[in-house]
Simulated assay, not measured.
Amino acid sequence: MKTVSLCVVLFIFAACKTSPPASSCRYTGVVKDLSGIDGCGLVIEMKDGSTLLPVEFAIPGFTLKAGQVVKFDFMELKDRATACMGGRTVRIECMQEMK
Rank of each mutant, 00 (worst) to 15 (best):
M1W: 11
K2E: 13
K2C: 12
T3A: 15
T3G: 13
T3E: 14
S5N: 13
S5G: 15
L6Q: 11
L6Y: 09
L6F: 12
L6A: 14
C7H: 10
C7E: 13
V9S: 03
V9R: 01
L10D: 05
L10S: 11
L10V: 06
I12E: 00
F13A: 09
A14Y: 09
A15V: 09
A15T: 07
A15M: 12
C16G: 07
C16W: 02
K17N: 08
K17F: 05
K17I: 05
T18A: 04
S19C: 08
P20R: 00
S23T: 08
S24N: 06
S24I: 01
S24T: 12
S24L: 08
Y27R: 05
Y27D: 06
G29E: 04
V30Y: 01
V30S: 11
V30W: 01
V30F: 03
K32M: 12
K32E: 14
K32Y: 08
L34R: 05
S35W: 05
S35K: 06
G36W: 09
I37E: 14
I37Q: 11
C40A: 13
C40L: 05
G41T: 04
G41F: 02
L42E: 06
L42F: 03
V43F: 01
V43K: 00
V43T: 15
I44C: 02
E45R: 10
M46D: 10
M46Q: 15
M46R: 14
K47G: 08
K47V: 11
K47P: 00
D48G: 12
D48V: 07
G49E: 10
G49Y: 10
S50A: 14
T51Y: 03
T51Q: 04
L52T: 09
L53Y: 04
L53P: 01
L53W: 01
P54R: 00
V55N: 03
E56P: 00
E56N: 07
F57P: 01
F57K: 00
A58H: 05
I59Y: 00
I59H: 00
I59G: 01
P60D: 11
P60K: 05
P60T: 08
G61P: 07
G61R: 03
G61I: 04
T63W: 00
T63C: 04
K65G: 06
K65N: 11
A66H: 05
Q68M: 11
Q68F: 00
Q68W: 00
V69K: 15
V69M: 12
V69P: 04
V70A: 00
K71G: 06
K71L: 03
D73V: 04
F74Q: 01
F74H: 05
M75F: 11
M75E: 15
E76G: 09
E76A: 15
L77K: 08
D79W: 09
D79I: 06
R80P: 02
R80E: 10
A81R: 14
T82S: 09
T82C: 06
T82G: 07
A83I: 12
C84K: 02
C84T: 03
M85L: 14
M85Y: 12
G86F: 07
G86H: 07
R88V: 13
V90I: 15
R91L: 12
I92V: 14
I92Q: 01
E93S: 12
C94H: 02
Q96C: 06
Q96Y: 09
E97P: 04
E97V: 04
E97D: 07
M98I: 08
